[in-house]
Every structure is written in C-alpha cells, then in structure tokens.
Amino acid sequence: MKKAEFKLEELSCPSCLMKIDKAVKSHKEVVKSSVNVMFNSSKVTFDFNDDFDVNIVKESIEKLGFDVLKVNVK
C-alpha cells in the first residue's frame, strides 16, 4: 500500500471539498477510509494499492476544474 498527497490550488468553498472527496473515492483502488481533503491547506491525501497510477486520480480532480500543483507518492 502506498500513500499519495496532492497539493491543489486554493479551495474557495466547502462544496469544492465535497466534489473532490467524491471524485477520489470513486476509484476502487483508493482506500476510501483513508481519503482526507483538507480545506485550509488545499491538500488531498489517500492510500492506494501499489499497482495503481495516481495520475488517474489527478485527472479526475482536474476534470472538475481544480489544478493539481504537486503530487507526492510515498
């Protein structure tokens, strides 16, 4: 299992947080209980299966209209 952290553009409303949370959790390879969207720091963290390409989640967030500024995978 690996962990990802995405730094996003500044989030401006709580509904943005909910949209991003739903998009990340929609991927079956993501451990849903690990998803954390942080409003004040504009970050998303989640755990995922080793063979999963996190760029798929990045694309899902960007399709919602939010820029992913940085991706860290541990």
Rank of each mutant, 00 (worst) to 15 (best):
L17T: 10
T45S: 12
S33A: 15
F66G: 00
L8F: 00
A23H: 01
M1P: 00
F46P: 09
V73M: 02
F46N: 09
F48L: 13
F48T: 10
K70V: 02
E5G: 01
A4R: 03
M18A: 13
H27E: 11
D47N: 15
K22W: 07
K3R: 13
S34A: 13
D50R: 07
C13G: 06
H27F: 13
D53L: 12
V71A: 10
V73W: 00
K43D: 03
V73S: 00
N55R: 04
S15I: 07
N36W: 02
P14A: 08
V24D: 00
L64M: 14
G65C: 15
S41W: 04
I56T: 11
M18Q: 12
S33L: 09
N36P: 00
V57K: 05
C13R: 14
I56A: 13
D53A: 15
K22D: 14
E10S: 12
S42Y: 03
S12P: 04
V68P: 04
S41G: 02
K32G: 12
K74F: 03
V30D: 00
V30K: 01
T45H: 12
V44R: 04
K25Q: 14
L8N: 00
F66M: 03
V31E: 11
C13I: 00
I61H: 08
M1I: 09
D50M: 04
I20V: 14
M18T: 12
V68E: 00
C16V: 04
A23E: 03
S15R: 07
M1C: 06
F48R: 08
F48Q: 06
M38E: 10
A23C: 05
K43N: 09
V57P: 04
D47C: 03
M38F: 06
E59M: 13
V24H: 01
V37P: 05
K2G: 09
E62N: 12
L11C: 12
D67P: 06
L64H: 11
V57I: 13
N72S: 14
N49A: 10
M38S: 13
V73E: 02
D50T: 07
E29C: 07
G65L: 15
K2D: 03
M18L: 15
E59F: 08
V35C: 07
K19M: 13
V71K: 10
S12F: 00
K22F: 06
S15F: 05
V31D: 11
S33Y: 01
C16S: 14
K7M: 02
T45I: 09
L11W: 04
D53Y: 06
C16A: 12
D47Y: 01
V57C: 10
K19Q: 07
L17A: 09
M38C: 07
V57S: 08
N49K: 15
F48M: 11
K25T: 05
F66R: 02
